[in-house]
Design a binder for these strands. Structure first.
Lengths: 192, 192
DNA sequence: ACTGTAGGCCAACAAGCGTTGACATCAACT
DNA sequence: AGTTGATGTCAACGCTTGTTGGCCTACAGT
């Protein structure tokens, strides 16, 4: 409720902790990423982590702040939406380990799973709705898109299945874009 | 190299341990599933787990023995392959928690990730090759199929994204089957 | 120059972990 | 009946974990 707090002297430390935490959570998952290891990476004492983030869960919450940074889809020609989306996600994740941290942690940590539900339901769901999709099927479409996008991330970055981990991004875009395109704009199939 | 060992008196105990282990690993992942908790579920002493399975890793190896049980695809009409595959996986996993255990553990445990690579590369890869697919693209096709199948499993059983977790199996089949069908038998896209 | 406060380190805690070895118990075979 | 080996229990070990509180240091405001 007051003015923006002026920079604290400890901001560098806080940032170092956060950077180390993201790396460790991404590489090891929540349980195996210990506060001691994160503190060692950041070259500070473990107790500083507690002081600044309260607890391990608090640290994770701060480290897993995550924005898909979806581009403005309204400006994209309708038939290129799949391509744009897949390329965006690959670009977005090649350099940022936060998604890997989130996937690894969401696998075993209910809180992180909840956060993941929120991120994808809201951001992808909202984008689908914004495109003018029939609201009755929008949620299902968003879920299907999420399933393929997360499956891509899981096989490429987490399990590192060779054909997926070694493929060139453009090749993956060419294969996967039609899937996303159909989930997004294709007709509802005549289900049983 | 001798005759099949006659039933041991401890077989019931071994089975109880294995059942409890699968449940716990599936529900909690490798790190949070403690030997003590598994032993408590099986109503035996933690030390029995060590006696029969050597270590926690040995127990997991035994619990995560996993066969996709792919049906004979040669008998399936070519244009129904996607449908048959998706329905098979959903059927296979609705009742068996082993896949969830494997996914949860593969997220953080390198050994389990290696096992997962083996299972999908060999079983799905082999099935794709067996269908007479061009060997040059078979691995990529298998990887793409795995990405969608695992993405389905991840969103439905692990993260439990509402639109995916609550959908009727037949509805998912109708949406996802064309994706698998295209990855399996569709033309190689003109990639950049 | 003095003081208050924020930043940082150190040592320790209680709890939980996988794992071990000694001891009891029971079934089977001579 | 007595021996033997498998089956199970109990208590403890060494280690790591998240977390805490006390203490020292250095800077900002007066």
């Amino acid at each position: 409720m007051t003015a923006v707090s002026r920079p604290r002297r400890s901001d560098a430390t806080r940032a170092a902790i956060l950077r180390a935490a993201r790396e460790r959570f991404a590489a090891d998952g929540y349980d195996r990423a210990t506060i001691r290891a994160i503190a060692a990476d950041a070259r500070i004492d473990p107790s500083m982590v507690m002081r600044y983030y309260g607890s391990k869960e608090g640290l994770f919450a701060a480290a897993a702040e995550f924005d898909l940074r979806l581009p403005a889809l309204a400006a994209v020609p309708a038939e290129q939406l799949g391509e744009v989306l897949v390329r965006h996600f690959l670009d977005r994740w090649e350099g940022d380990e936060t998604l890997a941290a989130l996937i690894r942690t969401a696998s075993t940590n209910p809180g992180a799973a909840e956060r993941m539900r929120g991120i994808f339901a809201e951001q992808i769901g909202a984008a689908v709705v914004r495109l003018g999709t029939d609201p009755a099927t929008a949620a299902r479409r968003a879920g299907l898109i999420t399933s393929q996008i997360l499956g891509l991330a899981f096989t490429r970055y987490i399990v590192r299945l060779p054909p997926m981990a070694e493929a060139a991004p453009e090749e993956l875009v060419a294969w996967v874009a039609p899937t996303i395109q159909r989930y997004l704009t294709g007709p509802v199939p005549a289900s049983a």
